[in-house]
């Protein structure tokens, strides 16, 4: 009898783990809206910079929410609300769509033609070192890097540095590189310096109030172990250079031997934090701020030393005006 009681007690306890936390039952549309609006209000980092009145937006968009609307209609309203943040690091992801604001690049000239680069500059015999494609043009090493999401290893950088030895200089083309892992940006910038240096500062939201941030912390470029290239470097950027590419542009802007050519980057200075809504949709938004050492927000883009646009006449002849300008700096 005693064992029966014991077993009943045990079986009463087991499988209760989940029930102690309450249920994850489906949330109403207004609950989903409130959850998203609140989290953005509490943790988004650029309201002040962009002069966005988030409370005002709540009034406007909450009135569009109806618990009877279907998931597609709900998605549209939430996506429109997030669009107001004008931030490429803000997305709402459901199984049927991903909202985004790409105005930071789509409202500007592209200034990059992949076909011309492939056919007329890289040619058929370019080298490949990890994610880097490189070619020697008139004793100048041209390096093309498409995404900082592609891992850059030390041996890839060694290949670049070794190939650039005894050449006039290096051109790093990160136009239309939408970013990725910041580590790759550190490593690539480190290949062009013999010592670590500060290139900016960063802080993170640490509370719900508008000015609740951590202290500013220095951002540093680490020096590369072993060989590094000590000659001149040209960095090609455009408005579609975003996020980690913006960081890379600023790292190189602070390098006295580097020149930035093309158009300013698209921004993307806030590291995005991710979250999940009660209905399972995933969202992300910027939760940090980064500034240059002269107090300019990365979010607004990194300016170039030498502004150049792709000339349609040159393009029709198969020439890249921005790359040609960079090559002419060395010739």
């Amino acid at each position: 009898m005693f064992f029966v009681v014991l077993l009943l007690t045990f079986s009463g306890i087991i499988s209760c783990e989940k029930s102690f936390l309450g249920s994850s039952s489906s949330a109403s549309n207004s609950e989903v809206f409130d959850f998203l609006w609140n989290d953005i209000r509490n943790r988004y980092s650029y309201f002040e910079l962009k002069q966005i009145d988030w409370d005002d937006l709540k009034d406007r968009y909450a009135s569009l929410i109806d618990d009877g609307m279907d998931e597609f209609e709900l998605f549209e309203v939430l996506a429109d609300m997030l669009f107001e943040l004008e931030d490429g690091h803000v997305n709402l992801t459901s199984s049927f769509n991903r909202s985004r604001n790409w105005d930071w690049s789509q409202n500007y000239p592209l200034n990059y033609n992949q076909g011309i680069i492939d056919r007329n500059y890289l040619g058929k015999d370019f080298h490949i070192s990890g994610p880097l494609r490189h070619q020697v043009i008139d004793s100048i090493l041209y390096v093309n890097y498409r995404s900082f999401a592609d891992e850059l290893r030390l041996q890839d950088l060694d290949a670049i540095v070794n190939r650039a030895k005894n050449l006039k200089g290096v051109i790093v083309d990160v136009r239309s590189n939408g970013g990725g892992a910041l580590n790759n940006a550190f490593n690539l910038a480190g290949a062009f310096t013999g010592e670590s240096y500060v290139y900016g500062k960063v802080r993170i939201k640490n509370g719900p109030c508008r000015d609740c941030f951590s202290s500013w912390t220095d951002l540093r470029v680490p020096a590369k172990n072993g060989n590094w290239f000590d000659g001149p470097v040209m960095v090609l950027i455009n408005r579609s250079s975003y996020s980690s590419t913006t960081y890379f542009a600023e790292m190189m802007r602070q390098n006295p031997r580097a020149t930035l050519i093309g158009d300013s980057t698209g921004g993307g200075g806030g590291s995005p934090v991710f979250g999940e809504l009660p209905n399972g949709w995933m969202y992300r938004f910027s939760a940090t701020q980064a500034m240059t050492i002269d107090n300019q927000h990365f979010e607004l883009g990194i300016p170039v030393h030498l502004p150049v646009e792709l000339n349609p006449n040159d393009e029709s002849k198969g020439e890249d005006t921005i790359l040609e300008t960079a090559l002419n700096q060395f010739r």
Binding site: E17, L21, S24
Partner: peptide
């Protein structure tokens, strides 16, 4: 081990 948790830093939903 049977685990159920909720971390509002990630999600209001229960993971188990």
């Amino acid at each position: 081990r049977s685990e159920a948790l909720r971390d509002m830093g990630y999600s209001p939903l229960v993971f188990s």
